[in-house]
Design a binder for these strands. Structure first.
Ligand code: FES
Ligand code: FES
Lengths: 141, 141
DNA sequence: ATAAACCCGACTAAAATAGTCAAGTATCAT
DNA sequence: ATGATACTTGACTATTTTAGTCGGGTTTAT
């Protein structure tokens, strides 16, 4: 049960970006340098973030990305969703009536994993980008 | 962020086993048939569970496995630990002072992932095998 | 014009996962 | 005794996922 780099980087990059919110667009090159993330990889990630309308892009020289919503409105859920990081604890399809082992009734652990999934998603739904920015600037004081 | 089959099966098999606690040892063959899990794979899993003293083995005909502790004393944490399913949200080593990107200070998201890890582990520490058995027998009534 | 940036799709090496397979050893029932 | 049942161990492998890289664009400020 582990987090992928992609989602880790997505959040890291957005926290970086959020700190400059309202000023000029932030280039991926800068984020790449500041956070030590591969530029090519960041491009993939931001392409997804843009498609899900979490960021806006500004092309050309002096271009970059800016937040498309207020930092407090961007929850971790939205970010994870955008980069296709799904919390997948159930083996079976949620709608399907079949169990994970092909039987007609749900397996012995189905409910447990469902609970776990909710437990994790709760965490993601509560945390906003703003919370993360605050935590970091506070620590710096 | 997903669960592996190994840990899913480990819990499923132990719930099955726990339902016969106190009676005869339960053979992996039976668990394999009832739960639809590969016998060979179950053997790998139970070898680990035995090494971590969660189950006891009884060899020979009529042999099988029995719980080595009371079902209420076996928490999900113990099971996951036994089969090497680690909740790994941090990229960096926890003790190391270095950050995940090689810098000397922790990355912007370090605290977040640490919180998440604790959040998930809380869930695992609260749930015991007994809880799971109960949930299932209740549903059957 | 040119350089800085975003944009897009294809490709790949390495790691992890989810098993399988083979060759045992111990014990019980008869 | 002997066979059948069941645990024990270790090696092997196909598939999938991950974590990127690479090449070739297009847009826009200066
Ligand atoms: S996880 Fe849903 S039936 Fe097993
Ligand atoms: S996760 Fe610990 S420093 Fe980034």
């Amino acid at each position: 049960m582990k987090l992928t780099s992609k989602s880790r980087y997505a959040v890291m990059a957005l926290v970086d970006l959020a700190r400059f919110d309202g000023l000029n667009p932030v280039s991926l090159r800068d984020i790449s340098l500041r956070q030590g993330i591969s530029l090519d990889y960041l491009e993939q990630i931001f392409s997804k973030l843009r498609k899900k309308e979490i960021v806006l892009s500004v092309r050309g020289t002096q271009g970059g990305y800016i937040l498309n919503k207020k930092a407090e409105e961007i929850k971790l859920t939205n970010i994870f969703d955008a980069v296709d990081e799904k919390v997948k604890t159930l083996q079976c399809k949620k709608e399907s009536k079949k169990s994970c082992n092909g039987r007609s009734t749900k397996c012995l652990t189905h409910n447990l994993w469902d609970e776990l999934e909710n437990h994790i998603n709760d965490f993601f739904e509560k945390k906003s980008l703003e919370d993360l920015v605050k935590e970091n600037t506070e620590r710096r004081i």
